[in-house]
Amino acid sequence: MSYIQIQNVWKEYGDQIVLERINAQVKKGDFITIVGASGCGKTTFLKMLLGTESPSRGAILLEGQPIPAEPSEQRGIVFQRYSVFPHMTVLKNVMLARELERSPLLGKLFGRARRQVQEEATDLLLRVGLGHALKKYPHELSGGMQQRLALAQSLIRKPAILLLDEPFGALDPGIRADMHGLVLDLWKQHQLTIFMITHDLKEGFSLGTRLWVFDKVRLDPQAPNAFGARVTYDIPVGQADRSLYQKIDRQLEAQPLRFELPQGVLP
């Protein structure tokens, strides 16, 4: 049995169908990148994995059990923004998860227990390249540094699954390349199962083990919300050739045009 099973998942908001008939099996240690036109339901799908949304039909199973319907420490998340706590220093941001775990009442550790967590957090921060910024507040860091911090913060409690919602969308290309290296390192070290949304198809083709493309297969120009998106491609990364890349690229770019009526329909 696979680690995560996605069984015929639909998501609807009233008349609007966002996702339809999503079926997939995910192995432990898979690194899945998700691409798709904006508004096609990528983030909705990630939220269902996170537990802040639940499927309208179908089920997502984690090790055979329905995935918990609220966020938990099993599944870490890094958003594009607002992932770190502005009122805590870098070190305290990372220590937080351990403090919450070991001090249910105060959420704060003291004395030896605190020093131990401090060491663990410092270690992790050194590995993501933030050793020089332990005492700084997030607003004093650049965007790339903030995302490094968000990653370190998510990983200290060793989640099995890491969800990344366009984590590098706001970063410069050069910094983005650094971050790719970091994510791949962390993925191997922590044996994570990663789902990462990106709007950069190149990122999807180079990072991770599987690429999913979300797209609407059926489209009614009169009622664009009548049909939802499905997983139209599920490609092992590294085995796809150039022509497929170009084909998906064209498909994603062409998305807005498809809302126009085909020629010859009107007199």
Partner: peptide
């Protein structure tokens, strides 16, 4: 909302979210 969700993925309970995330802010 991202912060409240993030705190939960770090294992925070309702009480801990109020104490460590909301109150100081």
């Amino acid at each position: 909302a991202e912060q409240i969700i993030k705190a939960q993925t770090l294992g925070a309970s309702t009480w801990q979210i109020m104490l460590r995330v909301i109150l100081p802010q």
